[in-house]
Design a binder for these strands. Structure first.
Lengths: 225, 225
DNA sequence: TATAGTATCAAACATTTGTTTTAATCATTT
DNA sequence: AAATGATTAAAACAAATGTTTGATACTATA
């Protein structure tokens, strides 16, 4: 009768475990293969539950996907803070480095740390009905945060279009290493990105971007600070 | 009996027209929706031919896709030269600008000019069995060309990893505006990229990258030229 | 223990989609 | 005109996949 009281079945698992298991597994599979190429059967087989469980607990495939997004957003915001230990009073160079390191890790990292980031990255290239919500709740706030750092780096009164384009350059570089992974693997026989490679990539993108934005600031928009 | 003699049916079209029409239409649809999300029925309906025509002329869906890639590569290499009117003796700054302008146009441009580029961009994010061939025949040559420009810009004896990473930064920025189009549309109410926007994007990426690579050269790798 | 509500399961259903079949049509050659 | 080979067309087939059904098992409560 009470929602908080869990039943236990013969295997010692509560019914909620089935729901949770689907949620976890679906997050992995959706992040890896995208919404459309993921089958309910694959999720259920991998989670060890009956096919009908998805319909019972989430209504349909889209309902499951939305629940996964919600769950993963909640976890990501709680467990993986956006600013990797930097304060807003830190110099913008430091903040940009932290932003890029966080962004790259959330996309390229192994395991749970990248679950939400990869789901977001999937929405970029294969939008679902959730894209509108995703943009407003996640992508826009992130882009606004990045833009404020870039604006600060660009110095006095930069054109808003310059801010947008420079921010896009930063994000574009980060996403590339995820999207191009199959190509990079073939171009350079590089099998996978470990923590070492991810750090090197983040450092490069930060350096590259700071050089570029710094030059924009000097040659176009007056002095920084 | 002779291959060069075409039959004409009641509508005044030669049989080869059916093949050609499928090839053209399939190129559009594949470039727009990707291999997996494209249905033979959609192609045939859009091309105004019978469903069985694909099987008759190309064997199966994969055969059609491979024929499209081959055809589009042939057309692209013939009609849209890689170096937008620049000579290899031009200064590397000019060559990078030309490379980026060409690359961005081949990806973001409207109509036929972007057909092959978008098919390639699709292979990045949704690889097919053709990816190995695509990498060796198209992506690697292009990346090698870009790398040689970047290497020249970086000055004496740059580290090969720096060359690779800087080249990746350039390509990543370009691809972003294609992949992120649905997001950009929502973030800035920007409905589409016209020739004006494409030029602005190309100019920005070139400037951003030249600033960055220039700073790498000055601070890391000795003097240019 | 009996009952009611919840959860699980095997099976079936309906739709989509790549593929094949078989007949008809068309153009060329004899 | 007849025959032949090439092409087109409608229909059916088979597999994949999201969804639903109806029965069964389980747990908490009375």
């Amino acid at each position: 009768m009470f929602d908080t009281i869990k039943q236990t079945n013969v295997t010692g698992e509560t019914p909620a475990d089935t729901r949770k298991r689907i949620l976890e597994t679906a997050g992995e599979v959706f992040a890896m293969s995208g919404y459309r190429n993921t089958t309910i059967r694959e999720i259920c087989r991998s989670a060890g539950v009956n096919i009908a469980a998805v319909n019972y607990h989430f209504g349909n495939k889209e309902g499951l996907y939305l629940a996964v997004l919600k769950y993963r957003q909640e976890v990501a915001f709680r467990k993986y803070p956006l600013d990797f230990g930097t304060a807003s009073t830190d110099p913008p160079e430091e903040r940009l480095r932290a932003f890029i390191r966080s962004f790259v890790t959330r996309i390229l990292g192994e395991g749970e740390v990248s679950r939400f980031g990869r789901l977001m990255a999937r929405e970029y290239i294969e939008p679902t009905n959730a894209l509108d919500t995703v943009v407003e709740e996640t992508i826009r706030p992130l882009f606004t945060r990045l833009s404020s750092i870039v604006r600060q780096l660009l110095g006095r009164k930069p054109k808003e279009e310059t801010v947008r384009l420079c921010s896009a350059s930063v994000v574009g570089q980060c996403l590339y290493f995820l999207y191009a992974a199959p190509v990079i693997k073939r171009l350079f026989q590089q099998p996978e990105f470990g923590p070492k490679e991810i750090e090197a990539i983040a450092d490069h993108i930060a350096e590259f971007s700071l050089y570029a934005i710094g030059s924009f600031a000097v040659r176009k928009g007056g002095e920084k600070g």
